[in-house]
């Protein structure tokens, strides 16, 4: 039983890794490549660690594998954000099929400032205020 679970987890992990690698080869520009590589790669590593934890079924190994999974969960979005941002701002060309770019107009490469386009409106809430039954006026 354990063998089957471990096998499935390991194969899923390797499959995700391979998917990430195929994506990084095939996709056309930097942001789309990051979609494939950072997430699928992290998923692959997490599945593999889950397989390791199941195989050893031991408290110490379990804690270590859990620590690795949590670490990957925390760091992979930060790394993706940092590289994606740097790649975008140094002017890596986007794919010709990109249909929309709302960031380019708001960014000033001279002063390195990024406007939001909502400077004049004071609060961020655009939705109509919800009726709140708890507070009677």
């Amino acid at each position: 039983m354990t063998d089957i679970i471990v096998s499935i987890l390991l194969l899923a992990g390797a499959g995700f890794m391979l998917l990430a690698a195929v994506g990084i080869i095939r996709l056309p520009d930097l942001p789309t490549r990051m979609h494939a590589s950072t997430k699928a790669g992290a998923m692959g590593a997490m599945f593999t660690m889950a397989g390791v934890a199941f195989f050893f079924a031991d408290g110490v190994v379990l804690a270590r594998a859990f620590a690795i999974v949590v670490f990957i969960l925390i760091t992979s979005p930060i790394a993706a954000h940092v590289i994606g941002r740097a790649g975008y701002f140094i002017g890596t060309p986007l794919w010709s099929g990109t249909i929309k770019d709302e960031l380019r107009d708001n960014y000033d490469s001279q002063t390195h400032t990024l406007r939001s386009g909502y400077e004049d409106s004071p609060e961020s809430v655009t939705l109509p205020p919800k009726p709140n039954p708890d507070k009677n006026p």
Partner: peptide, 30 residues
Amino acid sequence: LSSVISLTPGTLSLDVSDDKKVLFIHAMFL
């Protein structure tokens, strides 16, 4: 929020505007 958005495949948060009102997101399926 931006971490969760980055973790979901198909969306990647690029940057927050200087006054923290807008998050710029690269999406794969628009």
